[in-house]
Design a binder for these strands. Structure first.
Lengths: 201, 201
DNA sequence: TGTACATCAGTGAACGCGCGTTCACTGATGTAC
DNA sequence: TGTACATCAGTGAACGCGCGTTCACTGATGTAC
């Protein structure tokens, strides 16, 4: 049976959104076409009416995930600057949200770099370019969010901060003890925001 | 044909060593039993004479990779302390080696956390415990390598440093421009070692 | 030390399963008159 | 506005392939005498 163009377009978007979540949760190889189409209430046979291949969907889903991530960062930075103490407050809001137990536990909605990064490194498709752009874009946002210093210093600080955030989230997911996991998140946040925030009582 | 016990034991070790490298290079799912046994010049049929399952080998290969990593850290810290400026020199040697283009490019020989970490997070086997122990062990080494501060401060600094190292390596592998990649490595190293090392000229 | 036999690491074919992809078909949608 | 027909999103079965796992078999090793 055919379906209206609007419905088909909505189905396509539903599949991409589900893929963007499922790939982060289970990895590219552990999500089948049947899972992906099933998320939109469809059967797997129609897949190739919407996408050229599984790799095509992988790429579109990752673009979606990275775009969502950028939107979240923009929103959090805006909110933090609005209610907080200027640029410093915005950066703090972003870092604390990124390095939170909530972000740690919601892998399917979270940042794609500490989740799919290594899988992408092993590829040589268009996906590498997608992530390359994604890193540059979020690095630029972080650079703009850095409150202090000359442009060159802020760029360097943004790179170190990004590394600490991505690595802190990844490590916090690798340890099983929740207390240690939170300590890792807090220590990483303190490392980014300056040790003055955390420290001796 | 049978083979001497010594030969069989050597074959087993060869397979584990090859697995430890291949899994890091291609991921667990993209290395078949035929590849693994072939690395020791064997056919895939004999696999189950040596290992209970593929997951069993995955776990043993990761234990090996993590143990090798610890050995490397120990050696680099010793060398750095010997020829360098005490504990400070040892930490610098470790961080600069970890965040080097060489480590970035040699994934098969490198740290397992930014390479296999996300794949491990998705599992719930014994492998999670293996990595949990691995994180704790290397964190303890880093804590011991921290030159300054009270124990609590050194522990927190070690956590932030570990996060920056793991994240910096991962990000450096995700960007395609070599110059930017090296800047990420250097910025991460500067973040760990204190911005005084790098900075304005 | 030499011989007879049990052991078992390794072989190579086969099995079963899930996966990405293809394809003939369906029937509501969208268009042309 | 109503009718006839082409389009094409979605269906469900089938294909081929690679993979982890199993198994009967081999023959050199290791052991018992």
């Amino acid at each position: 049976m055919k379906v209206s163009r609007a419905q088909a377009e909505e189905n396509r978007r539903t599949v991409i959104a589900a893929a963007s979540r499922l790939f982060r949760e289970r990895g590219f190889d552990n999500v089948g076409l049947a899972d992906l189409m099933g998320a939109a209430g469809l059967t797997h046979g129609g897949f190739y009416k919407q996408f050229a291949s599984k790799d095509d969907l992988v790429n579109q889903a990752c673009e979606r995930a990275l775009a969502d991530s950028r939107d979240t960062w923009t929103r959090v930075l805006d909110e933090g600057q609005g209610e907080g103490r200027g640029k410093r407050g915005a950066l703090e809001a972003l870092v604390r949200r990124y390095l939170s137990p909530n972000h740690r536990d919601r892998i399917g909605d979270g940042c794609a770099f500490p989740t799919l990064g290594p899988d992408v490194v092993r590829r040589d498709d268009a996906l590498r370019r997608t992530f390359d752009s994604g890193v540059k874009a979020q690095l630029a946002m972080l650079e703009g969010a850095m409150p202090d210093g000359a442009p060159e210093e802020r760029r360097q600080a943004a790179m170190a901060a990004f590394a600490t955030m991505v690595g802190g989230l990844l490590l916090s997911r690798l340890v099983e003890d929740d207390t240690l996991s939170r300590q890792l998140l807090d220590a990483a946040a303190a490392g980014v925001l300056g040790d003055t925030t955390k420290g001796r009582p």
